[in-house]
């Protein structure tokens, strides 16, 4: 099922999960029709829709967990697996395509060892392709965490990735 593969056991302890979830649940307590806002807050806090958090939210709202996943999987903004510290996006719009986006994508896929929509095992990189981001004059466009790289940065991308990889393992943080 495309896009909803789900993650394995979380690295967060049950106690920490409850603690971080509590203020979110408190804010929406008793509010009707707040499911989407609540899920957005959960994703902001954990970087994705953490499965244990989903169970707790379902209990708190007295809704079946399946209903929450039905709502969440309806919208492309929600992620069901942890995202990488660096979300690398390659634009595949017309202008970028003509200026070599496919080659850039292929090189990134090879270097990172993942395909579009996937995240590296060390949770450092997520690779995505996106439609036109609207700065075609800068084509081909590559962004990291939604900041478009300039020419120099693009040329040094390969080295930069190597450096990032060599650093200490990252702890899972919220999507920036």
């Amino acid at each position: 099922m495309a896009g909803v593969a789900g993650s394995e056991a979380t690295t967060i302890s049950a106690a920490e999960l409850t603690e971080r979830l509590a203020p979110i649940l408190a804010e929406y307590a008793g509010k009707d029709g707040a499911v989407i806002s609540l899920l957005q807050d959960v994703q902001e806090e954990f970087g994705f829709l953490e499965p244990s958090a989903m169970t707790d939210v379902a209990d708190a709202l007295d809704l079946p967990v399946s209903h929450l996943y039905g709502v969440a999987s309806f919208y492309s903004q929600f992620y069901f697996e942890p995202r990488g510290k660096n979300v690398v996006k390659v634009c595949t719009g017309t202008a970028c395509h003509i200026r070599g986006a496919p080659a850039i994508q292929a090189r990134l896929e090879e270097q990172l060892g993942i395909g579009p929509g996937e995240t590296t095992a060390d949770l450092k990189f997520t690779l995505e392709t996106v439609n036109c981001v609207g700065c075609c004059a800068l084509a081909p466009v590559v962004s990291i965490n939604d900041r478009v790289l300039n020419r120099r940065e693009q040329r040094k991308l390969k080295g930069w990735i190597q450096t990032e990889r060599a650093e200490e393992p990252t702890s899972q943080e919220g999507a920036s």
């Binding site: 079946p64 929450l68 309806f74």
Partner: peptide
């Protein structure tokens, strides 16, 4: 989906959207 909700544990729902809609469990487990 409705039968499971009415009579049992409510574990099924429409997942995804549009032409990719399928009926299954959370995360298709």
């Amino acid at each position: 989906i409705r039968a499971c909700r009415e009579k049992s544990q409510g574990i099924l729902d429409f997942m995804e959207r549009g032409m990719s809609t399928i009926v299954t469990t959370s995360l298709n487990r």
